[in-house]
């Protein structure tokens, strides 16, 4: 009799165990356990070894494509270089003016950061959580909630650390919310991830003036991202939908699908941070 229902009994027990484990971890989200850290380290390092030959083939192909387009690219870059040189002079002028004004107003930046470079070793952008894994962990001084950026802007924040590996929650993940401001008119809003659709800006009233092409920067609120880091550009504004707020689509300045290296900001005076 028991043998006849053995499968059902075993499966039912397993379901109950898994539900208890899941409920416990949802109610008490804590730092990674030793076993979880061990699993992440084992899989990511094996994965890195396996990916090495695949990445090498990809690099060779990329270089071939690069050579094919080299002539055209060179001409385009020369034109762009001339334009950027002119812009740089203007920005330098603005920068020096800014320093003078800061001195005048005694608004000196009080948060000094050091940064650590890390390599992306795995990407989970089609899974439940949109995350990447980087090859630096607690052994390098990383911890949860540190901001992760590239030369193009913010990409996310660390949500889990192991000894030599850390997990970064990308801005595109639906559970990611960060406080931003529109650079042009200093309008604040909350940037939420929209998965495959990039991001969108929440809680901006329909009466506010937001235009396509407006640049978003971090507001410095929330204690994770320093103020003034580039985030993205407004790509769509919809005021026709019902409700109090506009629907604003945002394209991130950093292409999260192509990230290979990142920088992690570590505040030198870490005591005041959350």
């Amino acid at each position: 009799m028991i043998f006849k229902y053995r499968s059902i009994i075993v499966s039912s027990i397993l379901i109950v165990i898994s539900l208890v484990v899941f409920s416990f971890h949802v109610r008490h989200p804590s730092s990674s356990s030793f076993l979880r850290k061990l699993a992440v380290e084992t899989i990511t390092h094996t994965e890195s070894l396996l990916r090495y030959p695949l990445d090498s083939v990809k690099d060779v192909w990329k270089r071939y494509i690069f050579l094919v387009n080299l002539g055209e690219e060179n001409k385009r870059l020369e034109e762009k270089n001339a334009l950027l040189a002119r812009q740089l002079i203007q920005y330098k002028e603005a920068y020096f003016e800014n320093i003078r004004l800061q001195k005048l107003l005694a608004l000196k930046e009080n948060v000094s950061c050091k940064s650590i470079a890390a390599k992306v070793i795995a990407k989970n952008q089609v899974q439940v959580l949109k995350t990447i894994l980087i090859n630096k962990g607690t052994a390098h001084g990383l911890k949860v909630n540190l901001p992760v950026v590239t030369d193009q802007g913010i990409v996310g924040r660390i949500i889990e650390t192991s000894w030599l590996v850390s997990r970064v929650l990308l801005l595109t993940d639906e559970s990611s919310n960060i406080d931003v401001i529109v650079q042009r008119n200093r309008m604040p809003g909350i940037l939420q991830g929209a998965g495959f659709g990039g991001c969108y800006l929440k809680y901006v009233s329909k009466t506010e003036d937001i235009k396509i092409g407006d640049i978003l920067i971090s507001s410095g609120m929330g204690g994770i991202f320093p103020k003034g880091l580039l985030i993205g550009t407004v790509t769509g504004v919809n005021k026709t939908e019902s409700g109090l707020f506009q629907k604003i689509d945002v394209k991130l300045s950093a292409d999260v699908a192509k990230i290979e290296e990142v920088l992690i900001f570590i505040p030198e005076n870490n005591n005041g941070r959350q």
Binding site: F22, H25, L129, L169
Partner: peptide, 8 residues
């Protein structure tokens, strides 16, 4: 562990 979701 790999996806980063809550254990369970």
């Amino acid at each position: 562990c790999m996806v980063g979701s809550a254990t369970g």
